[in-house]
Computed example of a mutant assay.
Amino acid sequence: MSTTKLLLGTAALFLMAAPAAAVTVKNASAGEITIGIDYGDNEKIETIAAGKSVKFECKELCGVTGPWGFSWKVQGDDTITSDGHSMVTVMDEKKAE
């Protein structure tokens, strides 16, 4: 067997054995939530039941939008936990003065 074939075969084994990068979104609320997963060239919508979680593959940066009020950039083995409420606090500028 040639060295090239041996190296290609070894590389293929490593690629197959490597775990897929899976982002987890956990729903810690009492109701279901809906999230959007943006892969750049396509988008997927997932509904997550109360107390459940969903995992999705994200080899590179992905965008995740949901009830937390803005998008998160995720990758690899990131985890997002949502209680169904916004994670963004908008401050009233007039009250802040």
Rank of each mutant, 00 (worst) to 15 (best):
P19S: 13
G31I: 06
K55Q: 14
A17D: 02
K52A: 13
W68V: 09
Y39I: 01
D78E: 14
G63I: 07
A21H: 15
V25N: 02
A21F: 15
E32G: 08
V25I: 13
I37Y: 04
A18Q: 01
Q75Y: 13
Y39Q: 01
G76A: 07
Q75I: 09
N27S: 09
L8M: 04
A50L: 08
G76M: 06
S71K: 12
T24K: 13
L13F: 03
P19C: 09
A18H: 00
S82G: 08
S82K: 06
F14M: 06
A50Q: 06
G63S: 13
A28C: 01
I48M: 05
G31A: 12
A11E: 05
F70C: 00
W68Y: 04
L7V: 02
F70R: 08
V64P: 02
E43F: 09
W72N: 11
N27G: 10
V23L: 11
K73S: 14
C62V: 07
G36P: 05
A20Y: 04
G51S: 08
F14P: 01
I80M: 12
T24E: 14
T79A: 12
G51V: 10
T34N: 06
E57H: 04
F56V: 04
V64E: 03
E32I: 00
T79V: 12
S71P: 05
F14D: 00
L7S: 03
F56M: 04
L13V: 14
T10Y: 11
G9L: 04
G66N: 09
E32T: 06
G63L: 14
L7T: 03
D41C: 01
I37E: 06
